[in-house]
Design a binder for these strands. Structure first.
Lengths: 153, 153
DNA sequence: TATTGTTATACTCTATAACTATA
DNA sequence: TATAGTTATAGAGTATAACAATA
């Protein structure tokens, strides 16, 4: 019956801890939102960048998403097998693929983008517009500060 | 030579995407900070909550950290084997363990807390105090809004 | 030599089901 | 029956090394 309250004051003052908890809670929910379309957060992000930059290469996409090239391969394999994207050979460089959405891929992306936008609005419904934008800006600055911390290893 | 710039404007407006990128960049760096002490972000968090709530049980710790009980076991096994924590039997309930830090555990935790605090300050060095606190508060509200979204499944 | 995409592999985090020993 | 801790297992994300084809 001892319903002792557990405190975590010392952790709560760390931005990194707040970041982890918020991300964990959001990640599962975004994936649940995208599941009906057969997408995950990562595959949706890939579709978005391809939609915005048709003809880009896999290594460029990996760079834009800040993931390693090998991790992108299975994501693109899946999207390609389902007919959502196409890997076109690049005539000028036969090692590379130019990525673009198919018509189906474009439609699925539009549906997914709407779903994600609605989810994002719901997720940040406790914040004002200003607070929401300030948070996104702060997150970007944290990301930048962190990645440029190790300039040359 | 085509150093084409890849845009991700459509993704950048999603708070969830900013969250993911910031967390990914931070997670690796926190773990690198804690590596010399043989800790990860999760084991450090466990130490912090045990330090703050000596005698708490594993299920209470799991609840405080928002992780499932099974995932905590190996973390505590490791901390116990290294002599940083103790699992005391609870006389009133012989199923449960009361967790506490050893003297060594207390020392390692203090070192780790200093390192994490320094890292956190560096990570948020691009933010003013007000911005930093506002961001942490916003993250907590997002976490809360998201977890209470599914009240009973 | 360097780069593109690929394969293989490993590690971490998270989640669920089922077990044991207690209650 | 219900709970505390455990075991086993699975899925997803991320990372590195090494390879073939091409530059």
């Amino acid at each position: 019956m001892e319903k002792q309250v557990i405190s975590d004051t010392s952790l709560r003052c760390f931005a990194g801890y707040a970041l982890k908890r918020a991300f964990n809670s959001v990640q599962a929910d975004v994936n649940a939102t995208l599941a009906p379309l057969g997408l995950r957060m990562l595959s949706f992000s890939a579709l978005a960048v391809i939609a915005e930059n048709p003809g880009l290469r896999q290594s460029q996409l990996a760079g834009a998403l800040s993931i390693e090239r090998p991790n992108l391969v299975i994501v693109l394999d899946d999207l390609e097998q389902r007919g959502l994207i196409v890997r076109d050979r690049v005539p000028s460089d036969r090692r590379a693929y130019a990525l673009r959405l198919t018509d189906d891929g474009g439609r699925v992306y539009q549906l997914a983008a709407s779903a994600v936008q609605a989810h994002d609005a719901r997720m940040t419904s406790g914040l004002s517009k200003v607070e929401r934008l300030a948070m996104i800006d702060a997150l970007r600055r944290i990301e930048t500060a962190n990645t440029k911390e190790q300039p040359d290893g």
